[in-house]
């Protein structure tokens, strides 16, 4: 299945991190595509932007934001959105993503991805804001499920259902972070496989994979390690539903040499191909 936006499968990429700038420049094309953290390139005319522009000439780039604040009750930051639009044009970003969360209120930014109550009030609020955001950006936005550490009494529906309804109401796409599905499900005692099975597959434009840290009582989304086996299994389950899907490995703490991250992206390709081989083989056997 292809996503309903007609967006291309960009392959298996890695997040662009400052420590790897010179590796990417020296050996371009190591990753099928690169994901840049939007905010790191908005407020600079220096080396980061220069590097991103050069890499974007050689490798497809997608923009991943952390400050769109889609769930906040604050007014939208239109100046920020216009800067995102300008950057997206400048580096020919294939698409723009951010998170289903709020990051601050009353003009403040906590720089965290904070949880929202999943109910009708929030759904209407976020959908209305997303429509404006997509108008300003002149393109669809694709939202990621964040890792969460608490559940709100005001929630009346599950996260996959909320994301599906939000996508229908606003026209947005989805970035499924499979590690976040696992982390949140563990933290709240929910069924991660049911989450994967419930997400509307044709809305999934991109996938994130990352490592987490087990603190015993809960999992922390640290992006500090290899992808865990349970997350690979969930990824395979998702790919069997979506078909080949643009997939990215995130690594943000204790960042290893680029080759280690690239190897993880190659593993994602192998896992996806094996999952699709299984699926297609099964379909053929069923047809025969």
């Amino acid at each position: 299945m292809r996503n309903r936006f007609g967006l291309p499968m960009l392959g298996y990429g890695v997040g662009l991190r400052t420590v790897h700038f010179s590796d990417h420049l020296g050996r371009p094309g190591g990753a099928d595509f690169l994901e840049a953290i939007t905010e790191n390139f908005l407020d600079t005319g220096g080396r980061p932007l220069h590097v991103l522009e050069r890499l974007a000439e050689l490798t497809p780039v997608v923009l991943h934001g952390v400050s769109m604040n889609v769930g906040s009750v604050d007014p939208l930051d239109l100046a920020y959105l216009r800067e995102v639009r300008a950057l997206a044009r400048r580096v020919d970003a294939r698409w723009v993503t951010d998170h289903l969360c709020w990051t601050g209120v009353a003009g403040r930014n906590t720089h965290d991805l904070l949880p929202l109550p999943r109910n009708e009030e929030t759904l209407a609020h976020v959908a209305a804001r997303l429509r404006v955001i997509q108008d300003v950006l002149e393109r669809p936005v694709h939202l990621e499920n964040p890792s969460t550490y608490l559940e709100l009494a005001a929630s009346t529906m599950g996260e996959a259902e909320f994301l599906g309804r939000l996508a229908d109401l606003s026209g947005c796409g989805l970035l499924v972070d499979v590690n976040n599905v696992f982390v949140s499900s563990f933290n709240h005692g929910r069924d991660a496989e049911a989450w994967i099975d419930a997400i509307p597959a044709d809305r999934v434009v991109q996938v994130h994979l990352a490592g987490h840290t087990n603190l015993g009582t809960h999992l922390l989304d640290t992006h500090s390690d290899h992808v865990r086996d349970e997350v690979w299994a969930l990824f395979a389950r998702l790919v069997r539903r979506t078909g080949p899907v643009t997939t990215l490995v995130e690594w943000d703490e204790e960042i290893p040499p680029l080759d280690v991250v690239l190897a993880e992206a190659r593993k994602a390709r192998a896992v996806a191909e094996a999952a699709l081989g299984d699926r297609d083989g099964r379909r053929e056997r069923e047809a025969a």
Binding site: T110, Y149, L150, E151, L152, T217, H218
Partner: peptide
């Protein structure tokens, strides 16, 4: 009435995860 109680952590501890990340960040 706002943060659900379940699992190994109480609501204060769950809020504490977010609270502890703010100074670190």
């Amino acid at each position: 009435a706002v943060v659900r109680a379940y699992g190994a952590l109480c609501p204060v501890e769950r809020l504490g995860i977010y609270a502890s990340m703010y100074p670190l960040r």
